[in-house]
Every structure is written in structure tokens, then in C-alpha cells.
Design a protein around this nucleic acid. Structure first.
Lengths: 172, 172
DNA sequence: CCTATTGCAGATAAAAATTATCCACGATAA
DNA sequence: TTATCGTGGATAATTTTTATCTGCAATAGG
């Protein structure tokens, strides 16, 4: 069982974007630089977040990314599902049917108990992820992280965020 | 997030072995045939289960595999960890340190809050897996599975299991 | 002892998924 | 008009997973 590296990048980026002002944006290249990641690959992940309506993007100079809704309404589950996909980790291949004894299909109408148990565990996993909001991550970082690190992050955001012209609905 | 196919095979094999009599064994080739799996690859997985003391193996003709302890004391978590390894699914790459601003290592003594949240979720996942015993899987199959399928499984086990010479509580 | 059957370890190969790069394109602020 | 930025597709490099093969050790039965 393994989560792709993109998950870590995506959560860190989202947490960073949570502290840009109002409807300002931050370019993907700045996010990549901020974590020492390959810009072209990170964009792939940011795109998935955009496709799942977790981020919004603005084209053109002064463009970039911002959260599509307040950090209070984005959970770690949202991000993990956006990056890793919605498929469950355990996929039942129904190998019980593949033996030498061929039974009628009607013998397999009941779902496999193993599958049920594995999916139950995964629901617990997702429920736990859904309990942590992006705002919790940010608040925890501000309250318990090292002040130097926090200050550096704030400075970085302040330096790279870009105010937008059109004042549409404001995010917080 | 993805679980290897070996997990499904391992659980099915363990469930099958749960219904062999006493200290009898069942050869890996029979287990592979029972689920239409490649024998040589399945042996890899059975081996991992043996290495983790979930199965015991007996060499020689009339040899094979059996459970190393009663099915009541084997959980799905035991099997999943044996096959997938004990590493957590989320591995924190500490990418927060990789930015352009180089801070002293003392700024990163606090563990990353993102990592903590992800590991918390994984603990929930493992706790849920630990709640299902192999005996539950077998009991459920006997009680709620299709009678034809259950009878076929029992017949298969009866046909392939091999009694051992009396003195056996040792292994590898 | 001999032989056949079985598990075990290691090397290796084939297939698939992940990670990463590049380029042509449309959007847009200045 | 131009430079900056996101988008999408194609492609390649890398790693992981899946699968096979071979030689070897263990051992039941003759």
C-alpha cells in the first residue's frame, strides 16, 4: 500500500495557498520553487486539484492558483481523492471464481466477504482523513510550528502572491 | 493508493487453509489451482506469510502449508502487513525543507503536521483491519455464502489436504 | 540408499504504474 | 504587441509490480 508523492506536494501547496490574501493567486512555478519540486510535474497535480474544484486557476500574467473555497471546507480526503483517484485501494478480482470447479454465476451473487471487510477498513481511513481540514493544518502550523519556518513561509507567500483585478466573490 | 493483488490471493489462501484438518497441510500448487493463479508467483506471497509466522510450511512429499496459529488469532491486518510491508502508505519527504530559503535544522524538529494527520488516518485503517479475524471471514462464508460454492470449497480442501506424521509443532 | 514431491532463494524478465520533461497552444495583463 | 502563465498532449525515464525459471534443500515412502 503506497500513496504517490504527489499527495504530499498537493497538500503542502494547498496549505500554502490557504494563506494568500483574498482572491490573489500564486503561480505554479512559485509553488514548485517553494518546495524544490519539478515545476512541470507539479503542474499535473495542481491541475487535478483544479479539475476537482479544490483550486481555481487564472491565466495570463499575474495569474496562478488559489483555493476554490475556504480552507475550512477543504479536507485532506478531498485532496487525497483528487490526486489518487476515487477507486478503493482494494479491488476484488473475484478470484474465488477462477478455480477448476466451474459453478453457475448464480453461486456468486453474494458479494465476497473479504471485499466487504477491506472496504469497511478503507471507509474508516477516509473518514479519518475527512476529519482534518486544511484550516486545521494551517492553524497547527501557525501555532506549533517553528516561528522561523512560519515566518519564512509567510514572507514567501507575500512575495509571490498576486492581486487580481476583477473583484469577484471573495474567498477567505 | 493501491493494494497489490497479492493481498487478495493471500487472504483467500489463508481462509482456505483455515479449513484444513488439524495439522494437515495443503501444497501451494493446490492453492494456486484453487484460485487460478500462477503457482510460482503465489509461492512468493505464501512465503511472506510464512516469514511473518502466519503460515507454517512443511517440505517434502505430503508437505505444504497450514496456518501457524488458530484462525481466531489471525487478523486481516496481519496478512496485509505481511504482504504489503509495515511501511506507512504516506511517507513524509519533508519537502518543506527543500525550498529556496535554507533554515537551520533546528527549525524542523517538530514533526510535520501533515504527516501526523496522514498517519492518524492510517492508524484508523489498520485498526479497522485488525478487527476482522480470519475466523470471521470463514464463518461468514459458511453462513452466508452460496451453499454450492461452500460445498465445492470444502470438497477441494478435503481432496488436497495431506495429514502429517504425528509429531508436529515445529517449523522452518 | 533412491526417487519423487515439495518448499526456498535468487536471478531475471515482462508488464504496468509512477514520475518527469517538453512543446504548441490559448488566455490575459500591461 | 509582448511577455507571462495555465492547459493538454505526447513522450521518455524510472520504479514497482507481476511473473517465470532454475538450482537447491528437505523429506516421505519404498
Amino acid at each position: 500500500m503506497k500513496l504517490g508523492e504527489g499527495v504530499e506536494a498537493a497538500i503542502h501547496c494547498a496549505a500554502t495557498l490557504a494563506s494568500v490574501d483574498g482572491n490573489s493567486t500564486m503561480p505554479g512555478s512559485a509553488l514548485a520553487e517553494s518546495f524544490g519540486l519539478s515545476p512541470s510535474y507539479l503542474l499535473k497535480h495542481l491541475n487535478m486539484l483544479t479539475a476537482e474544484r479544490i483550486l481555481e486557476s487564472v491565466s495570463g500574467p499575474a495569474g496562478g492558483y488559489r483555493l476554490a473555497r475556504p480552507a475550512e471546507r477543504i479536507t485532506l480526503l478531498d485532496i487525497v481523492l483528487a490526486i489518487e483517484g476515487r477507486e478503493p485501494a482494494f479491488r476484488c478480482g473475484e478470484i474465488r471464481r477462477n478455480g477448476p470447479v466451474k459453478l453457475d454465476a448464480s453461486a456468486y451473487v453474494k458479494p465476497c466477504g473479504i471485499n466487504a471487510a477491506m472496504l469497511r477498513a478503507e471507509r474508516a481511513y477516509r473518514a479519518a482523513l475527512a476529519e482534518t481540514k486544511l484550516s486545521d493544518i494551517v492553524a497547527d502550523y501557525a501555532a506549533e510550528g517553528d516561528p522561523r519556518s512560519f515566518a519564512a513561509s509567510c514572507a514567501f507567500v507575500a512575495r509571490h502572491q498576486r492581486p487580481q483585478k476583477s473583484s469577484s466573490t471573495k474567498q477567505t
